[in-house]
Design a protein around this nucleic acid. Sequence first.
DNA 1: CTGAAAGCGCTTACAG
DNA 2: CTGAAAGCGCTTACAG
Lengths: 334, 334
Amino acid sequence: MRDIAARLGVSSVTISKALNDKEGVSDELKQKIKEVAEEMGYRFNTLAKSMKEGQAYNIGVIIPERFTGEIQSFYLKFYQHIARVLDQHQYSGILHILSSEDEDQNVLPRIYYDKKVDGLLILGQISNDYINLLNRIEIPIVYIDFYNEDAEADTVITDNFYGVYEMTNHLIKNGHKEIGFVGNIYSTSSIQDRYLGFYKSLLEHKLPLNQAYIINDRDDRGKYIDLELPEKLPTAFVCNCDQIAYNLINKLNSLGYRVPEDCSVVGFDNDIYAQIAEPKLTTVEVDIEEMSRTAVKLIISKLKSKQKKWEQVSVKGKIVYRNSVMQLTESQGK
Amino acid sequence: MRDIAARLGVSSVTISKALNDKEGVSDELKQKIKEVAEEMGYRFNTLAKSMKEGQAYNIGVIIPERFTGEIQSFYLKFYQHIARVLDQHQYSGILHILSSEDEDQNVLPRIYYDKKVDGLLILGQISNDYINLLNRIEIPIVYIDFYNEDAEADTVITDNFYGVYEMTNHLIKNGHKEIGFVGNIYSTSSIQDRYLGFYKSLLEHKLPLNQAYIINDRDDRGKYIDLELPEKLPTAFVCNCDQIAYNLINKLNSLGYRVPEDCSVVGFDNDIYAQIAEPKLTTVEVDIEEMSRTAVKLIISKLKSKQKKWEQVSVKGKIVYRNSVMQLTESQGK
DNA sequence: CTGAAAGCGCTTACAG
DNA sequence: CTGAAAGCGCTTACAG
């Protein structure tokens, strides 16, 4: 505000009035001030206003833990862990659900413009354009659960590659030789890595990669599409996530197949879909706790010293064994 | 801080040092200062510190909307609406999940102590002790989706009574004469009101209230228990929420009954359980949008003028018709 | 060990 | 229409 005032040769009082559309400033000057503010990339400091007025312009919304329930989206659950870790470091988490419009139109959340936050944790893949936008802002950022080459920030991901690699090994150990993969392998980096882990396992066991067994599950926007199954089924499917595994089981059931008797199915995430699926899914559990700790540690260290280089940390998950995998005898495996 | 300084005849610098455990203050004085601060109910103003340091001690966590998914808890979905309305009023929402321990031990969230919020929206029923605790704090509070006689604050609830009343009327219109209710009627005020709406409908239609058809669904802590069904089933069940309706359907299926052919089932909330139930549930949809607007309006008006009396607003929902209700012919209804 | 002074970025009340 | 002064509640650097 001072800078703008200096530049225009007026007082900061006038700037304040102009920016708040209060009276006492000529329309001309107001206009000019707004332009310069915009040009200089001025961000209003709500904190100063808040302090002056004794108002934080924040409203706490409290939800008792038990009402957040078993059923909830993976990322919201993730948020709860992050908030807890943040709290241990004397920070508060402010959750912002980025609307699709804001993402498409590259608008940053108000909490950024209002200087209400010191840093940003991005949970889940966002568009490249948006990442470019984020590259241009000055507060530290940590991307969680996906990575992007162009992102100039730290990244914490789950070890997708080894997770699925080990899961596929597990299937092979159980006698499966014809194994499919469900997921749009061009969609997100996570899915791609999971697919590659799957592929590595096949390679190591000298099993063929059958293109007919690679099933697409979503369009390029991430919207789920109907699964198109091949005439002849493999003996097992590796799904890129639990929700798709859940959908696949329903699809198989509707076609008259039983899981795991006719076809085994495994997932990834160990989220609510792994629980409500019938049979319950053998899946890979992401270590949310550890990922949260890592992400918070990274962003706080960036807050302390801006200098550090960006890191990419991948956190190992572990397989949760349940009932969706059938052990095949020699003849079935053929 | 000034007050403490005045009271102890020392400077505010000393207070600052003592409270932050910095050196330059005798242990004795430190101790004394902390005691007095505690006694005077001093709350540190993070905002001032933040402003001085240029740090907000807040970290934004951004989740793209599409990842919050279809599946999520009712209250989390509610939060998203509230956050949006808050944003329209230039406020930010800070979500705090109140842990069961904190609730039991009556500890207020840090965002309150740190003066990070101007007011509190409480989403979902909390213990009476906690309400008493909240009665004692000075920032405005609005309770959402439940009410409590002792709460000294505004309340926004959904019209539970009329919702279930109309739903029960709907069943009766479809020929049902023996209707049960599922829910612990001593548990929450919402369930109680829903039960009373159900009862009113029976009364108006001169149908008997059969105690054997009132099924308990949870213990006093709100934990779900196994549903104990009567020997002879009614032709329809009104459930106090969709999740219980979902559970009931599973229970009925496992006992060999079909829904709605053998027994109709209706819910309340129109949440994810209404969608994943098979058949999909006829249920009452809560007007989250309107409730959010009302709650935000109430709390902001309280922020502007502390004087106003407390209001209790109930917002009407509407019935969503799906496939879980069977129209009975005369003979079946008997 | 203790405190007076200055300043963080804004706004309000008042004077010109 | 414009601006100088004071103050919001804290902390830091410095002096005693």
